[in-house]
């Protein structure tokens, strides 16, 4: 159905191009400063390739956090949720399946970010370690999705004003190293940043793609993402089950 809005579909890809161009010039401005080189030495010292991966892969944060709740709310508003819920397919399956498109489309967007960076702006991925990067990506999707499912539980009950997505999205962007390395943050902020999965995701993906880092170098980050997912996934599913039951008890499943 999303593809039926063709202009919006094309526009989204155009916006990627403009975003990449904008950061290319920001990188040109900052690029040669010694302090920038020093802060980014771990990732090869190039700000443009650093920020390109940051903005590209933070798309998964937005989709993981927002797609489940957005899809539920959208089905409630369209009026299709009730018709779906009378079928034998479980609500959790409906929600997970409806987000598949969002994740597939985001993967495509991320690919376009990297392609534009590689083809037009000379970012090199020739030494990239693909397998650790892909594993980091899968764990990133699981970790962000579990937070997104908790967010969807809020929407199921309160309909609007979900605090989870707002707090996590803004905090992750501020502290997780999307636009700048966390090493430039004050010590206490760096400590807090390790509570967010995006910190581990972006570090592992950047090191794998830009420095060709293998499992021995990004193993700690991957382990942190696994532990995070093992803790948050059962909690998120329990929250969602509770939210559905409560909405059925209140008779508000399809309300918005």
């Amino acid at each position: 159905m999303e593809v039926s809005y063709r202009f919006s579909f094309v526009l989204q890809f155009a916006s990627i191009f403009f975003s990449v161009v904008m950061f290319y010039f920001v990188a040109k401005l900052l690029g040669e400063a010694p302090s920038v080189q020093k802060s980014l030495s771990e990732y090869g010292g190039n700000y443009f390739s650093f920020v390109l991966i940051g903005i590209a892969f933070s798309n998964f944060l937005s989709v993981g956090l927002g797609s489940f709740s957005t899809n539920i709310r959208s089905e409630q508003m369209l009026g299709t949720l009730e018709a779906m819920l009378v079928t034998p397919t479980r609500l959790s399956n409906i929600v997970l399946s409806s987000s598949q498109w969002s994740f597939a489309f985001t993967s495509l967007r991320v690919g376009v970010y990297l392609l534009i960076g590689g083809i037009f702006f000379g970012v090199s991925f020739s030494g990239a370690a693909i397998i650790p990067a892909l594993l980091a990506l899968v764990l990133t999707v699981v970790a962000f999705s579990s937070l997104g499912i908790i967010s969807a539980s809020f929407i199921m009950i309160f309909k609007r004003g979900d605090p989870i997505a707002f707090v996590l999205s803004t905090s992750s962007t501020l502290l997780g190293g999307v636009y700048y390395p966390i090493s430039i943050l004050p010590d206490w902020m760096q400590t807090v940043s390790y509570l967010f999965p995006i910190t581990y995701s972006l570090r592992a993906i950047r090191l794998s793609l830009l420095q060709g880092a293998g499992f021995s170098e990004v193993g700690g980050d991957l382990l942190a993402l696994i532990i995070f997912s093992l803790i948050t996934l059962p909690i998120s599913l329990a929250c969602f089950r509770y939210a559905v039951r409560r909405a059925k008890r209140d008779g508000s499943l399809a309300h918005y």
Partner: peptide
């Protein structure tokens, strides 16, 4: 789940379909 496999709900509400 088994109950839902045996029933159909037909309402007068038109907005239970994807219009596009």
């Amino acid at each position: 789940g088994k109950v839902k496999s045996k029933i159909a709900l037909i309402s007068s509400e038109e907005r239970t379909f994807y219009w596009r």
